[in-house]
Design a binder for these strands. Structure first.
Lengths: 219, 219
DNA sequence: CAATTGCTTGACCGTTTGGTCAAAATGAAC
DNA sequence: GTTCATTTTGACCAAACGGTCAAGCAATTG
């Protein structure tokens, strides 16, 4: 599975597209179904038939809207990437470090709880070598991370955070927050009844925030 | 540590097992190849042909040693599980909490660096709903985790650790350490040249240990 | 050496699956 | 209601893949 990243951000280019009511509805139904199917089965494991069936249409009909399985996959990935990164981009260099990071971690934990499929979708893609979003990671994401590492380094320089490597702090936050989505099966298996009880997500947030924030507080 | 897999049938029943020199070599070659292939392609994406080819033999020959793709998969999973959990099981209730956890985290980070495929194998299995090791998670692993949560709770009670929920501490450690293996592509893409330099793993270990250990030190 | 057993593989089969196509059904426009 | 474009699908194809089988090859044994 070798794919090059098309990065179809060409909204302006293909503006000669009316996109009828029925088209819009069907595309949405397909993409919604696709997130779930790709998340649980991976790219290879997912079948067009299942996506079509979940979207309430026949396979050829689905292929009428997206000309290949890959195209659906890329579209779904692109669509979710933006939401996923938004809270990270929103980290404010002028804000209080601890508060900014608390807000970011909380937002990511909420996303993991609310849309675990999106997280699993990424996890799958990256574990398999990021064949589709590889160049995105090396360009857009790297730039964004570089920007934020500067911010964190600045905070450290000001003595507002303990001296830690910004990259690894970011990785630790990503790892921890996404873990609750990607490994939910393991968490439920291990935590047993506790994981099902309401308030579990809040308890998780409290624990994660406590450890990380105390871990980076200036000493 | 004894780990019995749900699917692993007759180990004791099939007592007479000669296991010739050539058999042993071939089985090992197959399993070694299988770890890599399953790790990068997932169960569904992996093909018997590729495993066989990497192991240097024909597909029918591979099927002579393992009668199905699933059997290889289960075997590989079982084989790696023990190593993977050993350092966790080795956490000593009598030892110093901070030192015990430092040892555990360091061991897991080293495993992630040395054998990332093993970690990816698990990640894949769990993200896809743990179809094979599901019951293992609910039984053996849960018991082990319950045991260790008691230890951590005891430490907290003695005032040797800050008051944190043991489950979430364990999840945080798992998440962080495995992240370096499972998401290595993303880490390399984002950290750029830095990630390639020697000493990067040590730098990661230092940062992770610093944040986590300071995060749980009694205050 | 002969013979029994263990090891290896080319050829093959049935199924799944991504994708095509022509034709039918539906809707929009007049 | 007629016409034209859009939407939908049953039937089909080719490739990939898991798994089988019979026959060939190597090794061990007596």
């Amino acid at each position: 599975m070798k794919i090059d990243m098309p990065q179809s951000k060409n909204k302006a280019v293909k503006e000669a597209k009316p996109l009828s009511r029925i088209q819009e509805a069907n595309r949405k139904a397909i993409l919604d179904a696709a997130v779930d199917v790709f998340a649980v089965s991976g790219f290879r494991g997912a079948t067009i038939d299942e996506i079509a069936s979940r979207a309430g249409m026949s396979k050829p009909n689905l292929l009428y809207y997206f000309k290949s399985k890959q195209q659906i996959y890329q579209q779904v990935l692109e669509q979710t990437l933006e939401d996923w990164l938004a809270p990270f981009a929103a980290i404010d260099p002028e804000g209080d470090p601890i508060e900014e990071l608390r807000r970011y971690i909380t937002a990511k934990l909420e996303m993991s709880a609310k849309r675990p499929e999106a997280s699993k979708l990424f996890a799958n893609e990256i574990i398999h070598g990021a064949p589709v979003i590889g160049t995105f990671l090396q360009t857009t994401l790297k730039d964004l991370v570089d920007e934020k590492t500067k911010v964190i380094r600045h905070w450290v320089g000001q003595g507002k955070l303990a001296p830690i490597d910004p990259y690894h702090l970011i990785f630790l936050i990503w790892a921890t927050t996404q873990h609750y989505a990607d490994f939910d099966v393991q968490i439920r298996a291990v935590a047993g009844t506790q994981a099902g009880r309401p308030g579990f997500a809040e308890q998780a947030a409290q624990a994660v925030l406590s450890i990380i924030l105390n871990g980076i507080r200036p000493r």
